[in-house]
Amino acid sequence: MTQPIWITGGKGFIGRNLAQYISKKSQTVRGLGHGFWTEDDFAPWGFKSWLNAEVDFSSLSHLASSFGLPNIIFHLAGGSAVGPSIQNPYEDFQRTVETTARLLEWVRQHAPETRVVGVSSAAVYGAGFTGPISEQAQSTPFSPYGFHKAMLESLFASYRETYGLKLGVARLFSVYGPGLEKQLLWDICQKLEKANDGEVLLHGTGRELRDWLHVNDACDLLWRMATTPELPQVINGGTGQATSIAGIAALVSAAWGGRNNIVFSGIGRKGDPASLVADITRARELGFSPKITTDMGIEEVVRWYRARSR
């Protein structure tokens, strides 16, 4: 059955992939967020409409009056990385925390039966972990990005407990895939392109461990979460597999080809923990099982990058 679905922050990497994933299930998806898009731009991603606007009472009410109330809202609007949050913490706060507060208050007043899935981040966990992290682990973020995602989660918990709203949070780990023009894989590909069988220098030690989740698998998890009979309050989004940054760099280099030599500065960046790997027991209880292995996903990203550079 068709369910009216809204995605805030729909122009972002996860948002547009999620819209495409959901539209293939014959669902009606409407997008809201920053950025001008013509129909020729947004339609291929599966959106039936796109509203270039802030996530506030005016824009949400405009969508409702034009198309009716949604059954599900995926809330992806907000900050997207540690680095920009350190450079502009108040802007990150506005994008993540203020946007979330406005959305939940609008839902409380106008759409209390709507399910809302908020996208958070493994950055809420902070540092000090050496193995898979469960949702019950103590959250000790140490970057503005992590703190603001934790505030998003607190707002979801407050509105769920106080008003009985149908709210859940997905803590996504390292989401990647073709089309992501930032972060580690993009950085490595850019450096390999310039290196021409030379040396490629990356920050950190290379021993940092991350849980790499392909965007297609992330979309599958978000959809399962939103449509399960009992909406989970908090759930990790990952694979449960740890891969070092050096291992990721080696996979990218192998897929790229050539004789590049990847070296690490040995200096970690502030806000980068040594290990962030998900315990995905709860996700598996929803029937979730990652389909795309890391080596398959890395090869896909490299093919996409090289194709777009021609």
Rank of each mutant, 00 (worst) to 15 (best):
T293R: 04
V215H: 05
G83H: 14
A101N: 12
G126H: 05
S139V: 03
F13M: 04
G35I: 13
A122M: 11
A111W: 04
K270T: 11
V82N: 12
G12N: 02
T130D: 06
V277L: 02
V117K: 06
N261V: 12
S120R: 12
L103V: 09
G198R: 05
R16S: 04
Q3M: 12
N261I: 10
N260G: 12
Y145S: 01
L63K: 10
V252R: 03
F42I: 06
Q183T: 02
T96L: 02
A53I: 04
F57S: 15
R306Q: 14
S85I: 04
G238E: 07
R303D: 02
L213K: 13
L209I: 06
F264Y: 14
V117W: 03
N260Y: 08
F42R: 12
S253Q: 14
P178D: 00
G268S: 15
F42G: 08
K48P: 07
W45E: 07
A307N: 09
N88T: 14
G258L: 01
W50D: 08
Y21V: 00
A43K: 15
S143C: 01
L184T: 07
R102W: 03
V107L: 00
D217P: 08
S23G: 06
L276E: 13
L32V: 14
S139H: 05
N261Y: 11
G204Q: 07
L69T: 13
V263Q: 15
R306D: 00
F67I: 11
V234A: 09
I7C: 00
A218R: 06
A123L: 06
D187K: 08
R259E: 12
E161T: 15
A195Y: 09
G179C: 00
L155T: 12
G206R: 09
G206T: 10
R284Y: 11
S121N: 04
E54R: 15
E105C: 01
S289V: 10
Y176C: 00
L201Q: 09
R210V: 03
G266Q: 08
D295R: 14
K24Q: 14
D197E: 06
K166V: 01
K182A: 08
P273V: 06
A137G: 04
A195C: 02
G12T: 04
L51T: 14
G247V: 04
N17P: 00
T281A: 11
S309D: 04
D40N: 15
P44S: 00
S80I: 14
P178K: 04
Q138N: 13
L202D: 05
E193T: 09
V252Q: 03
L69H: 11
P141L: 02
A64P: 11
G237S: 03
F173L: 01
G206M: 00
E285S: 12
L231P: 03
G131I: 13
F36T: 15
V116E: 06
I72F: 03
F129P: 01
L192H: 05
D197N: 14
S265M: 05
V116M: 09
T96Y: 11
V252M: 02
E285N: 09
S253C: 06
D295S: 13
V55I: 09
L222F: 07
S65A: 12
